[in-house]
Design a protein around this nucleic acid. Structure first.
Lengths: 224, 224
DNA sequence: TGAAGAAGTGAACAACTATTCAGACTGAAT
DNA sequence: ATTCAGTCTGAATAGTTGTTCACTTCTTCA
């Protein structure tokens, strides 16, 4: 007797899998990684705890996949913003602004993905996430250098430093607490973007122009 | 009958307390915060597990005190270096370099103090540690601004961003792995210092000069 | 020296959650 | 309708460590 999964079943299985991931993401967005516990996630996804293990071999896998997913979304947003910019320097500014806006709009999630203590080992996917985003940034810096807009430099190290600066300034424990106010938020985004651009060697005056330019299209996102 | 602690006993108690803290520090330096577990620390300190609890009410307290101690040491090193500099910009450069050299010379410890996941809540002391160091940096930036060497800016946010940049670039998961080589190490320190100075608005050319100046006295520390 | 209080010991305990698994349920094939 | 592989369930299990506490050892002082 052959048992074959019917199309309907296949769809249901896929839906369930993504429901579990989704539940994990919601939990993380609401309460950080600490809130991503098997039992609560299972409840949110309307399944039993044991069922989670039919879709993910372990909590570490579940969280890793969550990190990968969020990171992929962010990376594509960065690319989109940068590619839409008129030149390499603008592209870099757009990339930085996008990162800033993104982490701010989902602070708990961003913190969880990046750095929040988790009881299982997710260093590999965190590393990959950082590597992807830092790599993208490095490419943009490199393009600006090749265009003669920036001095030659260790672009990988610079990209990593910029990421660290953005994260620490915007979602780290010392991040300003008044970022609910959209105006303060925009100021913070502009400030860190300016800082980042200058860090890689953009002249102050030119950097200020780029910041304004980059913030304009990103403003919509801030509201979202 | 009154029992009064004799001087000798007081001394022994104090010695034991610091032996426990020391053991915790060694463990953290060797294996990160994950290695700071009560039983192993007790063994290192030549006491029983229960004894640790006669000196520290909980693991959280122990680690908090460890963080405070390390942070205090670092802060005083930063102050010393900055105060010895000839002017506000040099002082800022010296402060940044000192932080860089410090975190690099004790990478595991630095990572543990700053950001490594711990199973107990140490957010308060981590926050204090960051606040102190970021505050010191902010003061130095502010001094340079007041001296007219830097454009006006949100110094607190800038200081936080710089800290994040230094940490991520030097001890984060994407930090270069070849930093055993003293030359590479010095290059990394110079690169991030340059980046940091430019970020707050020091002109490229002047920044390069300050970096060289600041790295010279710090070189000795790199060896240590 | 002996009594009493302080300090130290380490095996047992507790709490927390990820993970398992024996049995219940679903739905595909005959 | 019946069978059975596949799927789901959720209570029980397991592993990990911080913490406790009854007991031993040490120190002070009459």
């Amino acid at each position: 007797m052959v048992y074959r999964r019917t199309h309907q079943v296949v769809k249901r299985l896929a839906a369930r899998r993504s429901a579990i991931l989704s539940a994990a993401r919601d939990a993380a967005a609401a309460g950080g990684m600490a809130a991503v516990q098997i039992a609560p996630v299972a409840v949110r996804a309307n399944v039993a705890a044991g069922t989670v293990y039919r879709y993910f071999p372990s909590k570490a896998e579940l969280i890793s996949e969550l990190i990968t997913e969020v990171s992929r979304d962010e990376l594509s947003a960065i690319r989109r913003a940068a590619d839409a910019a008129p030149g390499p320097s603008s592209a870099l500014a757009a990339a930085v602004t996008t990162i800033a806006v993104h982490v701010l709009s989902q602070r708990k999630l961003a913190w969880g993905i990046l750095a929040e203590p988790v009881d299982v080992d997710v260093t590999a996917s965190r590393l990959a996430s950082r590597r992807d985003i830092s790599g993208e940034l490095a490419m943009r810096i490199d393009a600006a250098v090749r265009a003669g807009h920036l001095p030659a430099q260790d672009t990988a190290l610079a990209a990593t430093a910029l990421l660290g600066a953005l994260h620490e300034a915007l979602v780290g424990p010392l991040a300003p607490s008044n970022l609910e106010d959209p105006i303060k938020l925009r100021d913070a985004v502009q400030t860190v973007t300016l800082l980042a651009l200058r860090a890689v060697g953009v002249m102050d005056a030119r950097a200020r122009g780029l910041v304004v330019q980059a913030t304009t299209p990103a403003k919509a996102l801030v509201g979202a």
